[in-house]
Structure formats: C-alpha cells, structure tokens
C-alpha cells in the first residue's frame, strides 16, 4: 500500500470548488460553506485513490462505502459524483429544481449515494451496520463516514461511537469535519467537543488529527490497508475551515445555509479567479 498520493489532484479540487458555487447559483440553494469545508476530504477520497469505487458500477459489492452523515454537504457530494461520472454533469443544472432528485440534502435516489440524509446523528450508526455486515460476510470493503462537528452534539453519535468501539469495527473510518462553526455560532459557544481526541480515544478509536485541507495529510490518514486493518476503528479529526478557499466566506459566522446576494456572488467568482463570463460558461 502506498503511503502517499500518486497524483496531484489540485486541479480537480479547484474545479470541484468552482462547480459547487455554480451549482448553488443555478439552484438558488445549498449549504455552500458546509460543502466547501469538506471539498478536500471528498477530493482525496474520490479523486485521490482512497476509495475503491467504479462510477460505472455504483452497486458493485466490493466498493468501499461512503456515508455522508452531514448530508447538508450534499452539494459537494453531488458535484463529486458528477465529476466521477456517477451522474451526468448536466444533472447539476437541475439541482434543487422542481421535479428533479438533486436536493439540498443528499438522498439515495441519486446514483452513487449510499443513504438518504438530512437529519443529523444518523450516518455513523448506518455506517456501523455496513461495517458490521462486511465482517459478517467476510468482505474487505472499508466504510467511511463523514459527520459534522456540530453534529457531534447529537446523543446518537456517542451511542454509535460506544457501539463501534465495543465491536472494534476496525474497517470503519469516521471523519469529523471540524470547522468549528455551526448554524448559529461557533461550536465552542454551545457545547464544546473538546477534548475531542481524548473522547474519541476513550471510546476506542484510533485517533488521527490532520489538516483537513492538506491532501497528503488526508491521504495518509484516510488510506487504510484493507489487508492489514488497524486494531481499532479509526477517527479522523479533519481540522477544516468552513467556506474554505473563498475569503468572503471562509471561517465566517452567519453563512451556514445562507445564499450569497448577486453582488456577493460576483465577489465569490472573482475570488475563484474567474470572470463572470467564465463562471456562466462553466
């Protein structure tokens, strides 16, 4: 197993970021900053060679499973799935349009999506069920699940963590998008998760603390040797910045689920290094 990424995926990542903005603009909807927070995580998973997957066989039984528990990041997932070929790129133009199936929260009617989400605190247990099934069927797929950090205020998250730790589901990787911002304010203003690493460790996870925007760091943490699984389930604290990559949005409060105005869109497009014309033709 290689310990570093073979390819530079910065071009794909940039395209992903631009298409997220374009898709939100098209649909007049979306949790833009939540999607940008997880861009690099999904880029490394899907483009960086972490996931074993085949967009032409979405239900391939040997695929690694990816559960998006923070399903308000569906905007990012959908663009990734389009870039991988699970869904046509054209489908992104129908995002949040009446009569279409691409909505703000990811749902499993979309090719390549494992489960429907939206309500927080569900995905970790669903992932546990999938990881458990792999053990029972002696399959070697790895189950990845991405939760938010605010989502970790849900009791069901810790209920599931207890179970995963107790069952030693070492074929499960739990990624926490730790951007420190929830809908109303900074997470520390509510129920701080700290000391998060200690908590996860106490629940029986092998904890990795990484820069959630550094592809090499992410790759090393995410890539699990399926032939030599770690002793414990893995929890990755991905330290991220909400709205990453766009100064107007990055690490700013009051941007959760908010849509930019026309002027703000222009600024965002500038910050993406594009002209408005280029953006509209994307």
């Amino acid at each position: 197993m290689s310990n570093s990424m073979n390819d530079d995926i910065s071009i794909e990542t940039e395209e992903l970021r631009k298409r997220i903005i374009k898709t939100a603009w098209n649909g007049k909807a979306g949790h833009i900053t939540s999607a940008l927070s997880m861009v690099d995580i999904l880029a490394v998973l899907y483009f960086g060679g972490v996931l074993r997957h085949d967009s032409q066989k979405a239900d391939w039984s040997e695929r690694d499973r990816f559960i998006l528990s923070k399903a308000h990041g569906g905007l990012c997932l959908y663009v990734v799935l389009a870039m991988c070929g699970y869904i046509p790129m054209k489908a992104l133009e129908s995002y949040c349009h009446a009569g279409q199936n691409l909505g703000d929260h990811s749902n499993m009617s979309v090719n390549g999506v494992e489960n429907s989400g939206g309500s927080l605190g569900h995905g970790l247990a669903i992932a546990a069920g999938k990881a458990l099934s792999a053990k029972m069927k002696h399959q070697d797929y790895v189950t990845y699940v991405l939760t938010g950090d605010g989502e970790c205020q849900e009791g069901s998250i810790w209920e599931s963590a207890l179970f995963i730790g107790k069952k030693k589901l070492n074929n499960l990787v739990w990624i926490i998008d730790y951007n420190h911002l929830q809908a109303n304010s900074r997470i520390e203003g509510f129920n701080t998760l700290e000391p998060l690493a200690d908590k996860l460790n106490d629940f029986g996870f092998n904890v990795k603390n990484v820069n959630g925007h550094d592809h090499e760091e992410l790759y090393k943490a995410l890539k699990i040797d399926r032939n030599c699984l770690p002793e414990s389930p893995t929890a990755i604290i991905a330290n991220t910045r909400k709205g990453y990559g766009i100064p107007l949005l990055e690490d700013k409060e009051n941007w959760h689920g908010r849509l930019p105005s026309a002027d703000e869109y222009e600024e965002i497009v500038r910050e993406l290094g594009m002209s408005m014309e280029e953006f509209l033709n994307l």
Binding site: E114, A125, L132, K137, S160
Partner: peptide, 28 residues
Amino acid sequence: SDRYIDFGIAENTMIAAASGLASEGWIP
C-alpha cells in the same frame, strides 16, 4: 451468535445500524 447483535440500551443506533445491515442484503 454470528447473527445476534445486542446494542445495549441504544435503540436509535440499533435502528440506524439495521438500515445499514439491510442495505447490504440482511433482514434485520
């Protein structure tokens, strides 16, 4: 024993994990 799973007092996790198991072809 390979098809018996006790979640402890954690009904929500049990239901969601059942969903995960069912998605893999089991009948929980």
